[in-house]
Amino acid sequence: MKHAYVFPGQGAQSVGMGKDLYENVPEAKALFEQANEILGFRITDIMFAGTDEELKQTKVTQPAVFLHSVILAKALGVKPDAVAGHSLGEFSALVVAGALSFEDGLRLVSKRALAMQAACEQQPGTMAAVLGLEDAVVERICDETEGTVVAANYNCPGQLVISGAVEAVETACVKAKEAGAKRALRLPVGGAFHSPLMEPAKVELAKAIAEAPFRTPACPIYQNVDAKAYTDPEQIKANLIAQLTAPVRWTYIVKNMLADGVDEFTELGPGTVLQGLVKKVSTEVAVESKATL
Rank of each mutant, 00 (worst) to 15 (best):
Q159G: 06
V169G: 02
I162H: 03
G164I: 12
C156R: 09
C142I: 11
A151L: 10
V161R: 05
Q159K: 03
A181S: 08
K175V: 00
T145D: 03
D135N: 08
R183V: 04
V138W: 06
D143S: 12
A179I: 04
G164K: 03
I162L: 06
A151I: 11
E139N: 02
R140K: 15
A181C: 12
A179M: 04
E178W: 06
A184K: 03
N153W: 00
V169A: 02
E170G: 01
E146C: 13
D135E: 15
A152H: 05
T171F: 06
V138A: 06
A151W: 03
E170I: 01
V161T: 11
A151D: 10
A179D: 10
V137F: 11
T145P: 08
G164M: 10
P157E: 08
E134C: 00
T145R: 04
N153S: 12
P157N: 03
D143Q: 14
E146Q: 15
L133Q: 06
V138M: 10
V137S: 11
V149D: 00
N155L: 10
A184Q: 08
E134G: 04
E144R: 09
A168H: 01
E146G: 14
G180A: 11
R183N: 13
R140A: 06
T145H: 00
E139Q: 07
K182H: 14
V166I: 15
Y154H: 15
C142A: 07
K175F: 00
P157K: 02
C173K: 01
A136R: 12
V174S: 13
R183S: 15
R183E: 11
A172Q: 07
V169T: 09
Y154A: 13
V150N: 05
E146T: 15
N153C: 08
V149K: 02
V169P: 00
A168Q: 01
D135T: 14
V161F: 09
C173G: 05
A165N: 12
N155E: 02
E146S: 15
V166Y: 07
D135L: 07
